[in-house]
C-alpha cells in the first residue's frame, strides 16, 4: 500500500442544526479530568467525551475513520492526549479548514495526519460530503476525492517538515536521523 494514501469513512462533526462545529477545544476532545492518564492505549475511550452530540464517538467510530471538523480545531490547551486519543482509536486522519497552532504541532510530531481542507462549508451545504462517505487522499500531493459520490476535495498537502516526520513515524524517529 502507498503510505501517502489514506482512505476511510468520513465522519463530519456537525451540531444539532447540521452546521459544522468550529473552535472545538481540547477540553471537548479530551477533558482535563483525565489528564493523569499517561498510557495511550487508555486514552481512546475519552475521545470527544465532552463534545455535545459526539460523546459516543469512541463506540461508534471505526478504525480508519477520517474526522472532518470546523475551523480552529484543537483550540485551548497543549495536551498531547487530545491527539493521542484519536491515535489510540486508530482514526485515520483529521481534516479541518484550520487547527490551533499547538494542536497541529502535536499531531505533526506524533506522525498523526492532520490536513487543511478548503471549501468545506460549501461542500457540506451542498451535501458534497456526508458522514459515511468513503474519501481518499494523498498526503503528499493533496490530491483528494470523495469515492462514494465522486468529486474532488481541496486538501493542502503536508509541508516538507510535516511529511518528513510523518514518513519517519514521529519526531523522535525523525530526530535520530538528523545531522
Amino acid at each position: 500500500m502507498d503510505e501517502n494514501i489514506r482512505q476511510g469513512r468520513a465522519v463530519v462533526l456537525l451540531d444539532k442544526q447540521g452546521e459544522i462545529i468550529e473552535d472545538i477545544d481540547t477540553d471537548q476532545i479530551f477533558h482535563n479530568a483525565h489528564l493523569h492518564i499517561t498510557d495511550i492505549a487508555q486514552m481512546g475511550s475519552y475521545a470527544l467525551g465532552n463534545l455535545e452530540g459526539w460523546k459516543d464517538f469512541p463506540k461508534t467510530g471505526r478504525e480508519g475513520d477520517i474526522l472532518i471538523a470546523g475551523r480552529n480545531f484543537g483550540a485551548g490547551s497543549s495536551r498531547q492526549q487530545a491527539v493521542d486519543c484519536f491515535a489510540a482509536l486508530k482514526v485515520g486522519a483529521i481534516l479541518a479548514p484550520s487547527f490551533s497552532a499547538i494542536y497541529f504541532r502535536n499531531a505533526v510530531n506524533s506522525g498523526f495526519p492532520v490536513l487543511k481542507i478548503h471549501g468545506l462549508e460549501t461542500m457540506i451545504a451542498g451535501a458534497g460530503i456526508v458522514t459515511g462517505d468513503v474519501i481518499r487522499f494523498d498526503v503528499r500531493s493533496g490530491r483528494a476525492e470523495n469515492v462514494t459520490r465522486g468529486g474532488a476535495l481541496k486538501i493542502e498537502p503536508m509541508s516538507p517538515v510535516q511529511y518528513d516526520i510523518f514518513l519517519a513515524g514521529d519526531l523522535f524517529k525523525y530526530g535520530k536521523n538528523m545531522k
Binding site: S77, S78, R79, Q80, V83, I102, R105, N106, N109, S110, D170, L171, F172, G175
Partner: peptide, 11 residues
C-alpha cells in the same frame, strides 16, 4: 514563549 505537547517538549 510557546506551549507545546509532550512529544515536542521531550524532544
Amino acid at each position: 514563549g510557546q506551549g507545546m505537547g509532550d512529544v515536542d517538549v521531550a524532544f
